[in-house]
Amino acid sequence: MRRPRHLSPEERALWDRVAGSATPMNPEARPDPAPLAPVQKPSVVPRDPLPDFQVGQKANVHRPNDLLPGITHRLSNAPVHMDSKSFGKMKRGKLLPEARSDLHGMTMAEAHPELLAFILGSQAIGRRLVLVITGKGKDRDDGGPIPTRNGVLRHQVPQWLALPPLVQAVLQVTPAHLKHGGHGAYYVYLRRRR
């Protein structure tokens, strides 16, 4: 919204002269009301001052420094889209994967096409449960101010599985049981091909 432009004193005097020489079209009409006074802005409420800080004071080291919950936490809290009895067996490691793809040690550029081909190929031949091994990742903390995540593929594979073209093939993703790789692998339960 544009702010109204206020007239300077010279412009106001000129306007009054022009308006005074004009004849009104409707003599019974009321004259224009006086201009409104400018709106006063509310005063700024001062913020609470920062608490005093002493040199050598201990910082709060117990607060979490990660903004997103871990990938295993997010997958554990994801809604179950498959049969709950089969899901329970799968999480306990009672269902055997029909095939597996080992992405461990690959770069993201190598792993993404491999994952695409594996998942879509598995669905095409009628597989239901497959195992995708990502590895747990190496600890590469360089000591910088921003924390780095362990395991690039471990965090990226669930995101790839949730995006097209793989999302139409995947029914459920969950971390694998310890006997199938634990947090370094994922069970991927596939939809039936229509």
Results as ranks from 00 to 15, higher is better:
L103D: 05
V170D: 00
V61W: 07
E28I: 07
K85W: 00
P51Y: 02
Y189L: 00
G20Y: 06
R192I: 04
G20R: 14
G143T: 13
V188Y: 07
R3F: 15
N77G: 12
R5M: 10
I119E: 09
M1E: 12
L50V: 00
R3C: 11
A124Y: 11
P69D: 08
L75V: 01
G20S: 11
D16L: 05
R193S: 15
D66A: 13
P27I: 03
G144W: 04
E28D: 11
R192V: 02
P158M: 07
K41E: 11
T134V: 08
K85E: 04
R12K: 15
V132N: 07
V157K: 06
G144H: 12
M1L: 13
S101Q: 04
H81C: 14
K179P: 00
P145G: 15
P79I: 01
G143Q: 11
G184Y: 08
L95A: 03
Q54I: 06
F87H: 10
E114G: 12
K138D: 15
P35E: 01
A169I: 01
K138A: 15
L115A: 09
T148L: 03
H104T: 13
R194G: 10
L115P: 04
R47K: 14
L178S: 11
H155L: 12
L67E: 10
A34E: 14
G151N: 02
V18E: 11
D102V: 07
R127Y: 13
M90I: 00
H155G: 09
G182C: 09
P175C: 03
A176P: 01
K85M: 06
L163I: 08
L96G: 01
A37E: 08
H155W: 09
H177Q: 11
K91T: 06
G151Y: 01
A185P: 02
Y187G: 07
E28L: 09
S21N: 15
T134E: 00
A99N: 10
P24G: 14
L131F: 08
V44S: 09
A22I: 12
R100K: 14
H183L: 04
L166F: 10
